[in-house]
């Protein structure tokens, strides 16, 4: 099964609505609560990142028998130094994002901690693609 959702940059009212839908779907399919939680925590952090940093993005959720693969591709400023961004505490978030309870440089490390496989590609001036996979039997 394959689903795609659209996310608008700056739309803090709806930030998390895709994660919410995916959570409902995974629960309905009987995926174990631990896997549902780690998947939606990683997805929510990544969704908030699109809202906080990008102009727009698409989230593709691919459900297979043994795993879920989620790809978040955004159009935005990109990440100049991924290694720097992966370190806890490093962030370029605006004051607005910080007021929402994010922007402390924990998002990417949280995504890493809640995914079995993670790949980040970014082109400065074009955008960022985050792909992560979680296996159901772990």
């Amino acid at each position: 099964m394959d689903f795609t959702y659209h996310v608008e940059g700056g739309d803090f009212t709806n930030a998390g609505s895709t994660s919410s839908e995916v959570k409902r779907m995974l629960k309905k399919l009987g995926v174990s609560p631990d896997i549902v939680k780690k998947t939606v925590v990683a997805l929510y952090e990544a969704e908030v990142n699109i809202v906080a940093h990008a102009y727009r993005g698409d989230i593709n959720v691919d459900l297979e028998e043994d795993k879920v693969r989620i790809v978040l591709a955004d159009e935005g400023p990109g990440i100049p130094n991924i290694d720097w961004a992966m370190q806890k505490g490093n962030s370029t978030a605006s004051q607005k994002v910080r007021e929402m309870g994010f922007g402390a440089g924990m998002g990417l490390p949280n995504i890493q901690n809640n995914s079995d496989e993670l790949k980040i590609d970014s082109v400065v001036g074009q955008g960022t693609t985050i792909e992560f996979v979680n296996y159901f039997n772990k």
Partner: peptide
């Protein structure tokens, strides 16, 4: 003390 939609969403994702 953070009272907005994202604090509720965070609770939702974190059970």
């Amino acid at each position: 003390g953070l009272c907005n939609l994202q604090s509720i969403r965070t609770c939702e994702m974190s059970d």
